[in-house]
Computed example of a mutant assay.
Amino acid sequence: MNKRGFFGYATKGAWIVMVAVMLQSCGFVKDKFGGKNSKGGSKGGKKGAKQEVGVRNGEVIAAGRKDYKQDTPYGMVLIPSGSFMMGQADEDVAATQVNFNRRVTITSFYMDDTEITNHEYRQFVTALMTDSLSVLGEEEIMAKYHPDTTVWRKDFTYHNGDPMTEYYFSHPAFDTYPVVGVSWKAARYFSTWRSNLYNDYRSKEGKYSSPKFRLPTEAEWEWAARGGRASAKYPWGNPYVANGKGCFLANFKPQRGNYDADGYPYTAPANAYNANDYGLYNMAGNVAEWTLDAFADNATVVNWDMNPMNDNPDEPRKIIRGGSWKDVAYFLETGTRSWEYEDNKRAFIGFRCVVENLAGRAATARGGRKR
């Protein structure tokens, strides 16, 4: 091919590209994602013609529905997406060998900034007694969903738990303290009730439904507890349980059983002590927390590395995390795993909820199609 022929083809190609761009800008070439200047959009098609959602001029378009914005539920904070080395953050002094380190990725979600309190859980019990009494019956509600207040006596031998049994759940002095004596199944039922309550309100307001409340997975819980600190032994970041002034940073069992040394002999208010870098309170100590996962010795090995979860329904042992007011510092570590039977109710186990962040599942700040 001679130079004249080559430049002739090049010039012709350039003109074709220029014409295509002009047609696109004028709305004659359809934008797949339904831009406002696309054919059949706000400047195209018969004026006043009714168009079906997702259909334009008889053709399916890729444009999404507008005006969706996920609201932050009351009392929750946004936990960002990220990747971290999940597992033991320090020496496995108990030689459990059930938490081998591996890298996992977690997508963004919302999490309660505190454990569910007595006052919050009492709204749930009251609603059941009011709205579901004819369906469930008072006996079932009290047996399955009402906190077992006798755990303060049953969980500890030769212990005067009568005052806590009588007052902890019902008295206003403990309204902002974490609810205890609740089984894993009851915590999940609370999450379902909370989801229905929230989405009923959103429906009345003409809003899209929200993802449902649920318990966090074990991986989500650990990612949130670390607060963005890659190798944090405790949620506050440093490897010590007291600050430079000697003040303890959580509610646990320090000094070989000096329960009062941290300021609270039993549980503490759900927002006591300082929050971690994600704004979460008491991710170590106070009460251990139910997670969604079933327990397995090799779970960290066999679970997938993207949003891992062991949802074995045949395993009655469920993971609890964070340690409690009656535990030594080892159980407060971000990488320490423990478990309890799903039907058991304890004076040292509570919970908090999470909600999916759909925007976090759709794209991250570093990639994805711009909308």
Rank of each mutant, 00 (worst) to 15 (best):
G5W: 07
G40W: 00
R214D: 09
V241W: 01
P235T: 04
R188K: 14
F351Y: 04
E140C: 00
E218S: 01
A20Y: 03
E340M: 13
K12R: 09
Q97C: 12
N196Y: 08
P172S: 07
D175E: 10
M1D: 10
M85Y: 02
K47S: 12
K253V: 02
Y278T: 02
M18V: 14
N196G: 09
M309Y: 01
S170P: 01
T176Q: 13
K47W: 08
A225V: 06
P265V: 12
V180M: 09
T11F: 14
R256V: 07
T267Q: 15
G228M: 09
Y9K: 12
T300G: 07
F109V: 08
T130Q: 15
E115S: 15
R153F: 03
E333H: 08
A250D: 07
P80D: 13
L133Q: 07
P147M: 08
D314I: 05
R321I: 10
F331A: 13
V241S: 13
A62H: 07
A225C: 11
F109W: 00
R214T: 04
I106S: 01
W223T: 03
S210L: 14
R65A: 13
D131C: 06
V55G: 02
N251L: 05
N99L: 07
G322N: 00
K69Q: 13
A359Q: 08
S81T: 05
F331Y: 11
G323M: 07
R226G: 04
M309W: 06
S134M: 02
S203F: 00
G48N: 04
A363Q: 10
P269G: 08
I16D: 05
S324D: 10
K207H: 11
T364H: 05
A232D: 00
N101M: 09
V29Y: 06
A94N: 14
C247Y: 12
M142G: 00
Y259W: 11
S183N: 00
P239M: 00
G41Q: 00
T165P: 03
R226D: 06
I319R: 03
V301L: 12
G40T: 07
I79A: 09
C26E: 14
G206L: 02
W152Y: 08
V241Q: 01
E115M: 12
N160S: 11
R226Q: 14
L292T: 03
G54M: 03
N286W: 06
R229K: 12
I320H: 02
D67A: 14
L215H: 03
T334E: 06
G368D: 02
K47F: 11
L197T: 12
Q88A: 15
E115A: 15
A20H: 05
V182I: 14
T334N: 15
K43P: 01
